[in-house]
Structures are given as C-alpha cells and as structure tokens.
Design a binder for these strands. Structure first.
Lengths: 158, 158
DNA sequence: GTTGAAAAGTGCTGCGA
DNA sequence: TCGCAGCACTTTTCAAC
C-alpha cells in the first residue's frame, strides 16, 4: 500500500533548544544558533523545516509598542451571552471589530472573554457601545482597563 | 550648546505601511516590501532603523502552537490582593512563576489579572495551589479556563 | 530623504561520510 | 542522519541625486 516518506516527527531536546532561542529573538541567525548548540547550520535548517511541517511553528511576528503608535488603552472584556448557543454567530460578528485582538470561549461567569486595544477612552466607548453591544445575543459586558502591563512573554520550554 | 544630531522622529504613512506588512509576517524580505510600496530597499532599511531607535519596534518573536508542545491549558486568573500597596512585591514574586505569560494591573474587581499556560489540569492545580496562592498578599484567585482561542492577532494600524 | 548598486553576511541544496 | 562547501538571496552600506 502507498504511504508517505518516513519522517521523524518527534520533538527532541535539540528542537526545544532551537525554539527557545528563536522565541526570544526570531532574527537570530541560524549560524549563531548552530554555534551555540554545537551543530551545523544545515542541521538547524532541517529541524526548522520539520517543525514548520509539523505545525509547531505558526510564523514570526514583529512586536511593536502600541503606546508609541497612539494606542493608549488596553482593556479586557467579559461578555455575557443570552444563550450559549449563540457563540459562533457572536464570534463571527466580533471578528469584524478590528480593535479586538484576542477572543476566547471560557468557563466561568462569562461566555466570551476578549482583549481590546484602543486609542483613548472616547475610542473605547465608541467600540463598546456602537460595535460590541449591538451584536445580537450579547446581553451585557464587564470592562477591565489595564493600567500597567507587568509581564508579557512566551511560554518557557525548559 | 551641544545637541544630538537632527533626526526625523515622526511616524509617517510609509512607516505605518511597512509595520503593517511586517506585523503579519516578520520574515517578509525588505526587497519585497520595497517593491510593494514602490520605494527602494535602502529606504525600508532606513525606516526600520528609525523605528527601532524610537522603540516602536520591540523585537521579533517566533509564534508556536502551545498544544503541539504539550501545553494544553490556557487559563485566566483574577487575583485579589489584601492591600493594593502590595502590588509591586506580589508582581516580583509572580514573575518567577514561568507559567504566567502575561500580567496586568487592572481596574475593577481584581488588582491583578494574569494569563497562564500549563501542560494539564494537574500542572495547573500545582501552579495555583503551591506557587501562586503562597505569594504574600494574595487573598484569593478566580480561574477561567479557555476552551477555545477564536481570535489572536495584532492591532490593525489602518 | 531617497536611490541604485556593490559588499558582506545569511539561507539553502546536494554530495559525501 | 549529519556535516561540509558552493550557490542564491537578502541585508547592509555608501556615494550621488
């Protein structure tokens, strides 16, 4: 019977070490990683290709400072739905709200939990009143404003 | 009187367009960005250097799939402090808990709001009971477990 | 400030061990 | 499966506009 080319699809210690380095700084050259882990540059390349094929690596993104770009307010939203079954429809509508940067389906008091980034309080009020509260099925929301971001990092693989 | 070399420290439309492209895919070559925005590769380089010096760009990081690395649980924690003045000391201790990936000082019911990533429920219980509840000043916590991450993206600069 | 091209460094591929 | 060496591509620099 036909089958795919045999591949090693396990994640070993070397893979973890490569990921740890690149999660902190995605621009680290392969040659530098190779030197640090005492393997060849080609090996790093092969491992990275494997991790990408496995879907472990989803991509690389530039981290920016929202405040320096005029986004002064980060807030969290607990959203109550009239019925839990309205989740999918509500998410579809909420995805169109560009200010929502994260959205989760959670256990506990709320059905939906969201993170939102706005320019100022006027902008926040407009997004809340006109674009979120108007979504069908949303009963009410609770807002928590972040006064300080003290930790923002990736998971530690050690 | 002595003064620094004059520099244009304003962010114009071209900067915003460059950032928009790289925020979605940090590995886009400068030459490709240049072609798309109809400027030279050198210009992209100069702008990026300016944005880095201004602190607008904080770095580039590799995005991984936590589940594929054995991290199955994402949870949110609302933390009550005995006194608000204990915030700094508590954050210092909580920073040592590697499972905490985000931590905010927020308005509303809780003093601290945190995002936490764990392997499984046993791991989550251990982190909560043994490493978070034991921090001086922490009165009690409320836990919300994420059952689905529906949105995870960067702010839109348009 | 921007351009275009040259110089330096990095990523990628195939052969050999 | 890994390492080495050559080729292709990207980043970086710089004189000129």
């Amino acid at each position: 019977m036909p089958h795919k080319k045999a591949q090693n699809l396990e994640i070993d210690n070397l893979d973890i070490q490569i990921l740890s380095i690149l999660m902190n700084n995605a621009t680290t050259p392969y040659t530098e990683i190779a030197k640090e882990l005492i393997v060849s540059g080609g090996t790093i390349h092969v491992r990275m290709k494997k991790l990408e094929e496995m879907g472990v690596i989803k991509g690389a993104s530039l981290e920016v400072d929202p405040q320096k770009l005029g986004f002064d307010i980060t807030a969290f939203l607990g959203i109550y739905l009239e019925k839990g079954s309205q989740y999918n429809e509500a998410v579809k509508r909420l995805k169109e709200v560009k200010e929502i940067v994260e959205l989760y389906y959670t256990t506990g008091s709320w059905s939906i939990f969201a993170k939102i980034v706005c320019h100022d309080t006027t902008h926040l009020r407009e997004v809340l009143n006109e674009r979120i509260q108007s979504v069908p099925g949303i009963q009410r929301t609770e807002t928590f404003i972040s006064l300080e971001e003290s930790v923002k990092r990736q998971i530690s693989l050690d």
